[in-house]
């Protein structure tokens, strides 16, 4: 039985439908990210699970128990808020002890548990401070300590790292993941940052326009996106309409003739050869003649933008070398047949 089970949940704000028939299961100890652009409904879904909003339709269960209409303060889960929501009039220690106190622990026991949770996030010495005296990263840790002090089975995190700078964010990603594994808590983690989701999650649920587009681990949604939205949102992709496909004999249709099948090719899977260079080709390879339009080096990789059939196709090479390709060069783009992921019945 899943720890958290969401079935057919819908939520509207006035005439705007924020969530449409969303279903999702989260197993005990699992790290699931809700990933999507802003306005996709991921935060709404989190608030429904936390109990700050009530679903119009559908059921939410925890450990098999229906909590759809249970108020937030009786739900067996905790939340890390985007802005941390630390109580400004309480010391760090009192902030963290707040949860145990409300669930009936005595003053001494609550203080002990708070100290324990604070040392778990590396803030053992900060108990007497007030939230405003801490840095953003420290406040983030206090919020985390406060949320785990009651040892919930399920922790909801609403873009907890979005306010931190890049370096700190990277470090917190690792620490958060370690903490999650150490405590065995299931995380539902809202983020709009796909790298963050990829780096941390067991499974990612991609949302757009109030619907779950695809659920899977990072490799699955990257290699086999379920639809055009996921293909474009996760990583970069060359999207080419497919005219016919028999096994690996794939023929692309020109850009102005969209078909109901779409081929997704990641830039790193496009090999680029000089025209007439037929070395190292296998029979599974699909070949496209193209012309180089632009060459751009970005850090560790070099992108070669080519035009063919009215598409702009990007081929990515590792390293700074552009391989001598210049705009205007006639080239052959080679894609291994099994690197072309086909999305059926997708209108472009």
């Amino acid at each position: 039985m899943a720890l958290l089970s969401i079935e057919g949940v819908s939520k509207s704000f006035g005439s705007h439908q924020a969530l449409k028939d969303v279903s999702l299961n989260v197993e005990a100890g699992e790290f699931v990210s809700l990933l999507g652009p802003s306005g996709c409904g991921k935060t709404t879904l989190l608030r429904l699970i936390a109990g700050f909003l009530t679903a119009d339709r559908g059921t939410i269960r925890i450990d098999g128990e229906d909590i759809t209409n249970v108020p937030a303060h009786r739900r067996p889960l905790n939340t890390v808020f985007q802005n941390y929501a630390l109580f400004p009039h309480m010391s760090v220690q009192d902030n963290v002890a707040y949860g145990p106190r409300r669930s009936g622990a005595g003053r001494v026991e609550a203080a002990e548990r708070a100290s324990e949770a604070l040392s778990l996030v590396g803030l053992g010495q900060m108990g007497d401070r007030y939230p405003r005296q801490l840095s953003g990263g420290q406040q983030q840790r206090v919020a985390l300590a406060r949320a785990i002090v009651n040892r919930p089975k399920l922790l909801l995190l609403d873009e907890p790292l979005s306010a931190l700078d890049l370096q700190l964010r990277r470090r917190m990603q690792v620490e958060l993941k370690q903490l999650q594994e150490k405590l065995g808590v299931a995380f539902v983690f809202v983020t709009h940052d796909q790298e963050e989701a990829m780096a941390m999650s067991d499974r990612i649920s991609v949302l757009s326009e109030g619907r779950i587009q695809q659920v899977g681990n990072g490799a699955e949604i990257y290699r086999r996106p379920a639809n055009r939205f996921v293909a474009e949102f996760i990583g970069e992709a060359n999207l080419l309409s497919i005219d016919s496909a028999h096994g690996f004999e794939i023929v692309f249709a020109p850009a102005d003739q969209s078909t109901n099948r779409l081929g997704v090719v990641r830039p790193e899977h496009v090999r680029i050869l000089r025209e007439g260079d037929t070395a190292a080709l296998s029979e599974n390879d699909v070949r496209i003649t193209a012309e180089v339009a632009a060459v751009a080096s970005i850090g560790g990789t070099t992108d070669i933008h080519c035009t063919s059939l009215g598409y702009e196709i990007v081929a990515r090479r590792l390293g700074l070398s552009d391989g001598g390709f210049k705009p205007g060069d006639k080239v052959t783009l080679v894609i291994a047949g099994d690197d072309i992921h086909i999305i059926e019945s997708e209108r472009s």
Binding site: G51, A72, H73, R74, L77, T79, A85, P88, Y98, R102
Partner: peptide, 18 residues
């Protein structure tokens, strides 16, 4: 900030305690 009251409820405080 409304999220402070939500955090209180989230940590198990009844509306009166919040």
């Amino acid at each position: 900030d409304h999220s402070l009251e939500q955090a209180s409820a989230d940590l198990g405080a009844s509306p009166a305690a919040t």
